[in-house]
Amino acid sequence: MDMKTIQLLANGLLETVYMTLVSTALGYLIGLPVGILLTVTDKEGIRPNAFIYRILDVIINIMRSIPFLILLILLIPFTRFLVGKSYGTTATIVPLVVSAAPYIARMVESSLKEVDAGVIEAARSMGASNLTIVFRVLLVEAKTSLITGATITLGTILGYSAMAGTVAGGGLGDIAIQYGYYRWQTDIMLITVALLVILFQIFQMIGMKIASALDHRK
């Protein structure tokens, strides 16, 4: 393998890591508060509000039901408006975030709902406000589950980022399609697949290590 190919793959790897991490981070910026809002406004929540819950619920369901590949194309005008162009790694981050945010919101919701209702009641009996309960009880008690959720999300976004290669999204997926599919260079495709597998394993391992290190329920 020549230097040029190695350079190409290294670049693709970096692009993939960049897209995945930035998209997940931005996804949490939106998904985390929405997930909290879903938990709080649920009818079993600490401040039930059927109206808010219903609206969020419907929006999330709609967004989650659109396949990522179609979302990628649907969002092209929006991406162009936001980033200035619709191809390349930075542009790919837009549909990735749009797709990740509702997914993350659901992940967060399910993590927070695992928190024992008794502990929440105990906090209420101590005079804790709803805000205190969210930040000092729900998020703290659910942290292991939240981190596990983030690890799963990271893996999913990694997969999506590769899919974005079909529309010149950059990263390893792009290389796999351009060289492996259009040019029949199976060896390069296999290497990108191997790199994706390794990347996935690393993300998974680090995530689970952190989660178990922070868990005191053992």
């Binding site: 024992d116 008690e141 005191h216 329920r217």
Partner: peptide, 12 residues
Amino acid sequence: AMIFQSFNLLQQ
């Protein structure tokens, strides 16, 4: 103050 059957301590 209040105490409970299942103690309800913060597990973390």
